[in-house]
């Protein structure tokens, strides 16, 4: 795969807007085992809408299929969303501290400021 095609794949994984055309119900549900609760998930430093990258899995992985596809080598992390169901992911590690306080500033590793996350932790 050429350079451009590789990055296109990454781009569509991270920024495909069609992923966002979801119902209110889907948008409001944060599964009990979700990527946002995992210490291996880092939120995007650009968009605070809850998208992010896995710090362990790399691009090409897929935890939405059975069996999960795990790619551990690569230059870009596996794209996920704060509501992504991680119940089947063997790399899920629950994070003890989750910061939902939006009055401080960006911290890709610990902060999850979405309204749905606030609700979940209240």
């Amino acid at each position: 795969m050429g350079r451009r095609d590789q990055w296109k794949q990454v781009q569509s994984g991270i920024y495909d807007p069609s992923l966002k055309a979801r119902s209110v119900e889907e948008r409001e549900t944060v599964p009990d085992i979700a990527c946002s609760l995992c210490k291996n998930f880092a939120e995007s430093a650009y968009a605070s809408d809850g998208r992010g990258l896995c710090k362990v899995l790399k691009i090409g992985s897929d935890i939405s299929v059975t069996p999960n596809v795990y790619v551990l080598e690569g230059e870009v992390g596996y794209p996920a969303y704060f509501t992504t169901d991680a119940s089947s992911c063997k790399y899920f590690e629950r994070m003890d501290f989750i910061d939902t306080d939006g009055s401080e500033v960006a911290d890709p590793n610990f902060r999850r400021v979405q309204r749905q996350m606030e609700k979940k932790f209240k």
Binding site: R4, I14, Y15, Y46, V76
Partner: peptide, 9 residues
């Protein structure tokens, strides 16, 4: 796409 991904990081 490489620029897009890196910029949007």
């Amino acid at each position: 796409p490489e620029d897009a991904v890196k910029f949007l990081s």
